[in-house]
Amino acid sequence: MTSIDLNDVSLVFRVRQNRRVALKDFIVNRMFLRSVNPFMEIRALQNINLQIREGDRLGVIGHNGAGKSTLLKLLGGIYPPSGGRLKVRGVVSSLFDLSLGFEPEASGWENIAYRGYLQGETPHSLRDKMADIAEFSELGDFLNGPVRHYSNGMLVRLAFAVATAIEPEILLVDEVLSAGDMAFQKKARKRMEDMIATARLIVMVSHDMQSLLKFCNRALWLDHGQIQMIGKPLDVIAAYTEAMNSPTIPLPAAA
């Protein structure tokens, strides 16, 4: 049984105004009791209460910087919550920052292995999937060469092929439907549809309202790190589009 429970969860980034302070400055300034590097608090997520159950396909919408990707990373265990309780039951697989995380000197094959292992594969289980991943990426002989020679599109192809070779329980997707060129996008879409059909619980972030309507049975509108609305995709998207089009966008109280 998979489920995600967020109980009054908040996430505060403490951004330093200067970049990191040298240890010697820190010690010297401390001696004179000066504040070394004032923090600036950014409330990325505030008082999120959310229950996601098995079978849910939750679409997350909102404008840039509303906290959508942060929410996914929190669910994926990358960021710890600053307050509240987060409980995730089930094995999480995530698709985000796809073109990051390659070893430039290693070959395509080796990079498939590194990512695969990180996703919990073993040499044994990966052996069966290797050919499938290579075929899906359509990179052919390029896989023998170091990844540093790959174009950005090729990297995305490779990453997408590895990341979607898993059979996920909980799937977190951040805007990956626009990966690669036209032909690949079509394939990627098909693969995503298969995954969405098999995963037991999905949270996806997208700006593509059409796919949200197609794939999701719930939708969440985030605004300035707070839940603005949650409900049926059609209702939420309608409200969101209306708010975006109307001249007076409802702004929450300044954080």
């Binding site: 265990g77 990358i78 985000f96 920052d97 995380g101 990180l118």
Partner: peptide
Amino acid sequence: EKYIRQFPA
């Protein structure tokens, strides 16, 4: 870092 940002190992 590139792995830390993607996978909670």
